[in-house]
Design a binder for these strands. Structure first.
Lengths: 233, 233
DNA sequence: CAGTGGTCTAGACCACACT
DNA sequence: GTGTGGTCTAGACCACTGA
């Protein structure tokens, strides 16, 4: 009963103080030193509690300035984005894959900008479909920067999607994700076996290796089959 | 240049080993004790590196069994879900609010289940609109459990939305979020000033205070105006 | 039962950012 | 300058869980 870790107790206590209005948004709260004394524990323990609250977006920390209660009531929620194959199989469905096209071509201005290369430069463009029990589950439209991943040049991607291939072979240091809802174009609908205009849940991802963009991809899922879920405490 | 924290260097090194195939998925990696010796640092430092990798979903840790490289290539991505008002204002737009209806009524079976109350029990049902520069930005459809939040019974919600009201007054211990893409119904479209069938980005949230459900809400945004973004390293 | 990770402590040094 | 958070260490105890 009482073997809840000390740093968690402290987190709860501090949460309670924030919610009780004892510590107001924008206000500086006592320093780690002072808190550790009042809680009767080591400073590192208070530090961990505060660090986790900061990760969750409830407080903001700055050296010298101290820790302040976050102005905006925002909490960071964590969603797990899995590889399609795992996602499909975790639902108990059979995974399927089909390559649509694979071309080395010049990207348009928008894609070139996303890849951070010139429009004169060619890149690898792959489009493919992922199935769950034979039903289209995800439409993948990907561009790969051949400067960063030259070995992709000779990879046919006919039996394995570029997603898994990249994950297993190319490391990345940074990632960006954008989630959105869009209406399916006629082409999207045709490929996904749905009606034009149906809602799509789209995940756009870009990954970097140091300062170079590795790949940028758009993953579209029929809205009725896809959702992202998170649960936090 | 070289003042990167040790635990981060260790994280990178371990990431590299995983990506190089030196440590394979499902395989047990050396224990913290052994690693700290080989890295020439304290065990706590290795512990922090591994804890963070586990939070990101790259490894799984079990007592006694040790640490294994995660089977599924999954990474947890963190998205920040802000209060509508802050979201609108952070875009430099003017925030507006309008209450649509507020009733104390019996929920249908689905909602009753979500609130974890019987269908005979009444709950507070609030629907309202949030605007950005006069344009509908979010349609909120909320149910509040009056057993847990009795003081909501007398709150009119005519000038402030229930979202902000709850955040400031009612603490919660657990939260669940579900993100999805749906097509707007005729009613949704009418209220949001869009066409029926247009894609909506929907956030469904449920919060608990200990074991009781505080509230469940559906937040719908016109797809063309809304996206969630994350950036991680 | 025994090994592994989870947590805690007391003390320390340092970088940063405000004054 | 100087105080605050960021990080690190060496050593310790404990809970969990697989063998």
């Amino acid at each position: 009963m009482t073997d809840v870790p000390v740093y968690q107790k402290i987190k709860r206590e501090m949460l309670a103080r924030i919610q009780a209005g004892e510590w107001k948004p924008g206000e500086v709260i006592p320093g780690e030193q002072a808190l550790s004394e009042s809680f009767g524990c080591a400073r590192v323990t208070v530090n961990r509690a505060l660090r986790e609250l900061a990760e969750q977006g409830l407080v903001e920390r700055k050296r010298k300035a101290g820790t302040i209660v976050a102005q905006r009531h925002a909490r960071a929620e964590s969603f797990t984005i899995t590889l399609v194959k795992d996602e499909v199989e975790s639902r108990g469905s059979e995974y399927g894959y089909r390559l649509l096209d694979r071309r080395i071509e010049k990207p348009n201005a928008s894609i070139a900008q996303r890849l951070n290369i010139g429009t004169a430069k060619k890149a690898l463009h792959v489009r493919c479909l992922h199935f769950a029990d034979g039903r289209p589950f995800q439409l993948e439209d990907r561009w790969i920067n051949l400067d960063v991943v030259p070995k992709a040049k000779t990879e046919p991607f006919d039996v394995e999607g570029p997603n898994g291939w990249l994950v297993e072979r190319v490391p990345y240091t940074d990632a960006e994700h954008v989630l959105s809802a869009v209406n399916a174009t006629a082409e999207d609908a045709d490929l996904l076996g749905i009606e034009a205009g149906d809602a799509l849940f789209r995940i756009e991802r870009r990954t970097w290796l140091q300062s170079g963009v590795v790949t940028t991809v758009s993953l579209s899922h029929p809205g009725r089959d896809f959702r992202l879920q998170s649960r936090s405490t």
